[in-house]
């Protein structure tokens, strides 16, 4: 019996010697480990979503910047010089005076000074040529729109033209030496343009005599308006002109609001 027991214990020792020995720490398959794995997967998904979002945002931003903004500014350039004749509502395309170009240049300088636009954010040697050209198109459209906005707001001729031109010059020149924020500049421009619009298309148009068959009947029917029209050399335009110019100014301010300070990503 004892011999049998000893032989069994020897067999067991032999079989234990044949087993593999695995060294290492025991790991717990707990919930926290699973959570870490899930969080990792979520992070990856979020990164993908973020990249997709970024892609969509970039595409939308580019569309606004390179398609919508030039369109809106060029529409302002189209409408800014458009008047409707008092007699038959015919289109009158008025080309801008030289002073409008000068004021538009001053206004662009002001935009750069106030930080509404940054030069290195729009033109850089690090940008591809195509991007620099596309940015130049946007800024050119802005320049044309600014020129035509002054064409729209300045009276066409006579004493009012010089009075308005002087007021604009005074405002722009003063602003050139003031520390501005972009938002403040937009507010200031909005108020100046609104004031000029009211003065030209409400006040001066009220002083302009309506088109009459002849000078004598006009003098009898509207003596005061005839006198102001003659004294101030006010042109006759249809009431529709004011509506067109109103939308031109709104579009211009909307374009400025959407204009990014820099095109760097």
């Amino acid at each position: 019996m004892s011999q049998v027991t000893s032989s069994k214990s020897e067999d067991k020792e032999l079989s234990d010697e044949n087993l593999f020995v695995v060294d290492g720490e025991l790991l717990e398959t707990s919930e926290s480990a699973n959570r870490i794995l899930i969080q990792g997967e979520n992070l990856e998904l979020k990164t993908k979503d973020h990249k997709n979002e970024e892609q969509r945002t970039t595409a939308a931003g580019s569309q606004i910047q390179y398609i919508f903004l030039p369109f809106i500014f060029l529409t302002v350039a189209l409408l800014g010089g458009l008047r409707l004749s008092a007699e038959d509502n015919a289109f009158l395309f008025l080309k801008p005076a030289l002073v409008c170009l000068i004021y538009a240049t001053l206004l662009l300088i002001l935009f750069f000074r106030a930080g509404l636009l940054t030069l290195d954010g729009w033109f850089s040697e690090n940008f591809p040529t195509l991007k620099n050209v596309a940015n130049a198109v946007v800024l050119l459209a802005l320049f044309f729109a600014s020129t035509q906005i002054f064409n729209s707001l300045l009276p066409e001729r006579g004493l009012p033209f010089w009075v308005f031109a002087f007021c604009f010059f005074w405002t722009l020149w003063n602003n050139l030496f003031v520390e501005f924020h972009g938002k403040r500049l937009l507010q200031s421009l909005g108020s100046v343009f609104a004031l000029a619009f009211v003065a030209k298309y409400l006040l001066l148009s009220c002083l302009t005599a309506p088109a009459s068959a002849n000078w004598w009947s006009g003098l009898i029917e509207n003596p005061t308006q005839e006198a102001f029209t003659w004294l101030l050399d006010l042109p006759h335009f249809s009431a529709g002109t004011g509506y067109i110019q109103f939308f031109a100014i709104i579009f211009y301010l909307l374009g400025l609001f959407l204009l990014p300070a820099s095109t760097k990503k």
């Binding site: 892609q55 390179y66 398609i67 060029l74 991007k131 198109v137 459209a141």
Partner: peptide
């Protein structure tokens, strides 16, 4: 690459449309 290509297309479209409209 997709973003770059799309942006490039938009820029080209913007230049062409802007030039025609002007």
């Amino acid at each position: 690459q997709i973003i770059t290509v799309k942006e490039r297309h938009i820029q080209i479209l913007g230049i062409v449309l802007g030039a025609f409209y002007a």
